[in-house]
């Protein structure tokens, strides 16, 4: 004796669920590392110093152990790039051919027109399971100025993401101890900086 309706309907229900699970397990291969693994990796020092870039830049190209990647569009790359850098435009970062280029045992260093584009590429590459990827801080202009044209040891550990001012002084918030205190009127000029070419 069977209860045909119950059997059929439960079979249908569970088959749909199981099929969906199997389908999901086979189609979710877009990433090579979980989001959590990526954030954990981002906590490590993912930026190289200008000093090591300078060492790389002044060394003989045959002795180099690093792959430097220029993420800017091909036009900008053609106008000027670090000698020895490979061009992989950010938009095509995950193309199959570029993937093969990136699959090396040597460290991969990224730079772009903006530091945050390099960071975006880094995050995405870590997500693909690449491990040995780092970012050259600053944009191409800054790299060119401080490494290629004249190496400035005071900028050896340059970071674009460093605070340029003591923000607290300009924007007094409710948390200051003396809320009535007027902020210092003298506004220091910002540290000399290469102009950021346009917003994105």
């Amino acid at each position: 004796m069977k209860n045909q309706t119950l059997n059929d309907s439960t079979l249908l229900f569970f088959s749909i669920i199981m099929l969906a699970v199997v389908f999901a397990l086979f189609t979710s291969g877009k990433y090579g590392a979980s989001n959590r693994q990526v954030v954990d990796k981002l906590q490590d020092n993912v930026f190289i110093s200008y000093e090591s870039l300078y060492t790389w830049h002044s060394s003989d190209s045959k002795e180099r152990d690093q792959l430097v990647v220029d993420l800017r569009p091909p036009e900008e790359y053609r106008e000027g790039h670090l000698a020895g850098a490979v061009n992989i435009p950010f938009a095509d970062l995950l193309d199959r051919s570029h993937r093969r280029t990136l699959k090396t045992n040597s460290p991969v260093w990224l730079y772009a027109g903006h530091e945050h584009v390099s960071v975006a590429a880094l995050t995405l590459l870590l997500g693909q399971g690449f491990e040995n990827v780092q970012v050259i801080p600053g944009n191409f202009q800054a790299i060119k100025q401080h490494v290629v044209e004249s190496f400035d040891p005071s900028r050896a550990f340059y970071r674009d993401d460093k605070a340029r001012w003591d923000h607290q002084r300009f924007m007094p918030l409710g948390i200051t101890k003396e809320p009535d205190r007027k902020p210092s009127p003298a506004i220091p000029a910002p540290p000399e900086e290469t102009p950021v070419p346009g917003g994105c």
């Binding site: 209860n3 309706t5 119950l6 309907s9 439960t10 229900f13």
Partner: peptide, 13 residues
């Protein structure tokens, strides 16, 4: 209705 079938349907609802 069979109680298990009714329960199953109620579960779907």
């Amino acid at each position: 209705m069979n109680p298990y079938l009714a329960g199953f349907l109620l579960g779907l609802v």
